[in-house]
């Protein structure tokens, strides 16, 4: 029940554009329970789901101005003011796990102040990785990269160049239209993580899922307004700081669970899962990175030096470290 306990010293509003049943929201709910417990009941939450309080692409501004105390932010989908945040999520080519995505982001933050500057007025409470998108196709299976030739694929902006270089015909359409576009053959496939096979019902209209992994980066995903942060007593601020890894672990766990459920659902519904040969994946990653570097350099037009960020992320991935190295911290 969303009713706050009467003794709570602070009742904080939490807002997300996702419905409460979404994997992100399950993690958010678990985190809220945890914080209520850790604070000894001094903090209570009042959640607002499904975009009832904040929007999906302007939530950074909305939280900054106190529409909600805490909320979900997606700098990777925000079109202004957070260009390095947005671009850096495309610098992780070859990254292996969601945990690594989060770690690398945390290592980049102290080295590149621009990342924090873009989120001024906000206090980041959790960083999030994400499932690796694969390729769902309608009736033309993709077994090697060569099979991409001529396929009309709905994809996110950061992979348009790569897919085009591989001979595909990338298109950009609202995700809400993908189901009917697949059903009617307006497109041949969609680049999307496996959990969408179940959640967006793609298994009804597409029959192949190629485990081509599109690399993704970590990004700050939950934030509190500075106004609210300053209102909290230091010990409660500490409770929130300490809950950060717990929230991140919940997010990763729920994402992983959703991906597993999506794949299981796909198998049950006759979707053929096609593993992409390792050599093709490596070739794809190399190509992906080549275009990521181009995108990093394009940030110069906005007065942002993106290339060092790209190099730092790639150096970290190449090193195979699971923690920030000394050099990462002090460079």
């Amino acid at each position: 029940s969303p009713q706050p306990t009467p003794k709570a010293q602070y009742t904080l509003t939490y807002a997300s554009p996702y419905p409460p049943t979404h994997p992100f929201s399950r993690a958010d709910t678990a985190w809220m329970k945890q914080v209520e417990k850790d604070s000894g009941g001094r903090i209570a939450f009042k959640p607002f789901w499904a975009g009832s309080l904040i929007s999906s692409d302007m939530s950074i501004s909305e939280i900054r101005h106190g529409l909600a105390d805490i909320g979900l932010i997606t700098p990777i989908y925000t079109r202004g003011g957070v260009h390095l945040q947005r671009a850096q999520a495309g610098f992780y080519g070859g990254v292996k796990t969601m945990e690594d995505q989060v770690t690398i982001y945390d290592c980049l933050v102290p080295r590149f102040p621009q990342l924090s500057a873009e989120l001024s007025g906000l206090h980041v409470l959790a960083v999030q990785g994400g499932n690796f998108p694969g390729l769902m196709t309608r009736n033309r299976p993709v077994r090697t990269l060569a099979d991409l030739k001529g396929l009309r694929l709905r994809t996110q902006t950061d992979s348009i160049d790569v897919l085009r270089a591989l001979g595909a015909d990338p298109v950009n359409m609202p995700m809400a239209e993908v189901y009917s576009a697949l059903a009617k053959g307006v497109i041949d496939g969609v680049v999307a993580p496996a959990d969408t096979i179940k959640s967006l019902h793609f298994s009804e209209v597409a029959h192949y899922f190629t485990t081509l992994r599109l690399s993704r980066g970590g990004y700050p995903a939950r934030a509190m307004s500075d106004q609210t942060w300053r209102r909290l007593s230091p010990d409660l601020q500490q409770v929130l700081e300490q809950s950060k890894p717990k929230w991140e672990a919940e997010l990763n766990a729920n994402n992983a669970r959703a991906e597993k459920a999506g794949l299981a659902f796909a198998k049950d519904h006759g979707v053929q899962i096609i593993p992409l040969p390792a050599a093709d994946q490596a070739r794809f990653d190399a190509l992906y990175n080549r275009f990521a570097l181009v995108q990093a350099r394009q940030l110069n037009a906005m007065g942002i030096d993106g290339e060092p960020v790209f190099r730092a992320a790639q150096a970290h991935i190449a090193s195979g470290q699971t923690r920030c190295t000394k050099e990462d911290k002090h460079d």
Binding site: T21, A176, S199
Partner: peptide, 18 residues
């Protein structure tokens, strides 16, 4: 059909749109 409202419902309720 194709009803925008039913597509939204199908997605939030995780039900078959078809």
């Amino acid at each position: 059909p194709p009803s925008g409202a039913l597509i939204v419902f199908g997605i939030i309720a995780e039900q078959s749109i078809g």
